[in-house]
Computed example of a mutant assay.
Amino acid sequence: MVSRQEQKEQRRLLILQSALDLFIRKGYGETKIADIAKAANMSMGLLFHYFESKEALYKVLIQIGSEKLKMEMSFPDTSPLTAFEILAQDIFQLISTNPFAAKMFVLMENAHHLEAMSTDIKEMLSEADKLMEKSIPLIEEGQQIGEIRQGNPEALAIAFWNALQGIAQYIALHPEAPRPDAQWIIAILKK
């Protein structure tokens, strides 16, 4: 038997999943709170019991995505190239087994292009840029030991992370598509 608390958490998750699907397919501006309630098969009143507004719901989704981006770029006893291989394989595994995670890549990218978002949402979105910045010293280290190709480390970070971003977005919108091999992304960096 499902407890009352478990039922509340299941409803909250259903709302988040329904909103995420609509936000990535229709966009934030075109998604109405009534659309989310309908997709979650509940009344608007019940939805408002969980989230006070569409922006509050969007903010929770952005918080979830931002928390996942707060990973450390520290891989003790691992070469820089191996660290990027681990990152790419982990992300590919995540997006292949968890449709919600793949859709979060789409949401986070789309959110960067919204002008009318609150300051706190924009601050959360800056985590994606921080992740790219954190990877630059790792690329430089790999260049120094000769396992990562020469070139502008920031440009290499941009190429690596945006290749992952693009693949995650495509898989989110086309879940039946074949999965690229993580080594293809590593080839961007490999000397």
Rank of each mutant, 00 (worst) to 15 (best):
M1F: 06
Q5Y: 08
E6P: 00
E9R: 13
Q10S: 09
R12F: 00
I15L: 10
L16S: 02
L20H: 03
L22S: 13
E30H: 10
K32Y: 12
D35K: 12
I36N: 10
A39M: 14
A39G: 03
N41A: 14
M44Y: 09
H49Y: 15
F51H: 13
S53T: 14
L57E: 03
Y58E: 04
K59W: 03
K59L: 11
V60Q: 11
L61F: 08
I62E: 05
I62A: 08
K68C: 01
M71Q: 07
E72K: 11
F75H: 10
T78S: 10
L81H: 07
T82C: 01
L87C: 01
A88V: 13
A88P: 05
D90S: 11
I91W: 03
Q93T: 05
L94P: 00
S96G: 14
T97V: 02
A102C: 07
M104T: 10
L107Q: 05
M108A: 05
M108N: 04
E109S: 13
N110C: 02
A111E: 09
A116T: 15
A116D: 15
M124T: 09
E127C: 09
A128T: 07
D129Y: 12
K130C: 02
S135N: 08
P137G: 08
E140Q: 15
G146C: 06
R149Q: 14
P153M: 07
E154D: 06
A157I: 01
F160W: 04
W161F: 15
N162A: 00
A163F: 01
Q165H: 03
Q165N: 12
I167C: 01
A168I: 02
Q169C: 13
I171D: 00
A172T: 02
L173T: 13
H174G: 01
H174C: 05
P175W: 06
P175H: 08
P178A: 10
P180I: 11
D181V: 01
I185H: 05
I188P: 03
